[in-house]
C-alpha cells in the first residue's frame, strides 16, 4: 500500500487506548504525544477505533466518548466479518485446526476481530501494547499477504512519520 496516494490510516487496539487514558501505563506519554499530533485540525491521518475495542474497554469502565471527536469509531461490519473469517481460516491452515467447531467459534476472539477490522479499513498501521496475541495475529496477516499493515507494538517505539501523515521513508524517529 502506498501511503502517498491516500490518507494514512492508523488503527488503535484497546491496549493503545488504555495506554492513552491511564497515566500509570508505561506507554502513556508516547500515546499522548501521538494524540497531540492527531488532534490537530490540519492532521490528515485517519485514526480508527473498532466498536469491539469499545466493548472491551467498557468491561472495565465507560468508554471516553470525547475521543470520538478525534478518532473514528467504526462498527464491525460485513467486510470486517469476512476478513475475520478468512484470517481465521488461514490461521487454522497454518497452525492446525481446533478440535471442534465450538472451539473455532470461540476462538475468533476479539483481538483477532480487531486485526481483521483494521485490515478491512485499509489500515497502514495498527498500534497495540498487546505483543502477546494481537500483535502476533497482525503479523500473521501480514505474512499471508492479506495486508501490508505494519504492527507497532508500544514497547518498541514508533515511526512518527506516519502518525504525522508524512511519507514513511522521509523520517524515522522514535518517541
Amino acid at each position: 500500500m502506498n501511503v502517498r496516494e491516500k490518507r494514512p490510516v492508523i488503527f488503535l487496539d484497546t491496549s493503545a487506548i488504555i495506554s492513552l487514558v491511564d497515566s500509570k501505563c508505561r506507554h502513556h506519554d508516547a500515546m499522548v504525544a501521538f494524540f497531540d499530533v492527531w488532534s490537530q485540525e490540519e492532521c490528515t491521518v485517519r485514526v480508527i477505533v473498532s466498536a469491539i475495542a469499545v466493548a472491551e474497554y467498557t468491561v472495565k469502565d465507560d468508554f471516553p466518548k470525547q475521543l470520538f471527536a478525534y478518532f473514528d469509531m467504526e462498527a464491525f461490519g460485513l467486510k470486517a466479518a469476512e476478513k475475520a473469517g478468512s484470517l481465521r481460516r488461514a490461521w487454522d491452515a497454518a497452525n492446525g485446526k481446533p478440535k471442534s467447531n465450538v472451539a473455532t467459534r470461540d476462538q475468533i476472539k476479539d483481538d483477532f476481530k480487531i486485526v481483521a477490522h483494521a485490515i478491512s479499513e485499509g489500515a497502514d498501521v495498527i498500534i497495540t501494547a498487546d505483543a502477546a496475541s494481537l500483535a502476533k495475529y497482525a503479523a500473521f496477516a501480514n505474512q499471508t499477504e492479506m495486508t501490508e499493515m505494519i504492527v507497532w507494538t508500544l514497547d518498541k517505539g514508533f515511526d512518527v512519520c506516519i502518525a504525522k501523515g508524512e511519507p514513511p521513508d522521509l523520517v524515522s524517529n522514535q518517541v
Binding site: 484497546t14 491496549s15 488504555i18 495506554s19 492513552l20 487514558v21 491511564d22 497515566s23 500509570k24 501505563c25 502513556h28 499522548v32 472491551e56 468491561v59 472495565k60 469502565d61 471516553p64 470525547q66 475521543l67 476472539k109 476479539d110 483481538d111 501494547a129 498487546d130 502477546a132 496475541s133 494481537l134
Partner: peptide
C-alpha cells in the same frame, strides 16, 4: 479523559495483562 481514565483503571496494576486475560 486522562484524569477519569487513570481513576477508572487505578485498581488494575497492569491493564495490558488484564486485557490479555479478558481475551484469553
Amino acid at each position: 479523559i486522562v484524569e477519569a481514565g487513570t481513576k477508572a483503571w487505578a485498581d488494575i496494576p497492569d491493564p495490558v495483562a488484564w486485557l490479555r486475560d479478558l481475551r484469553e
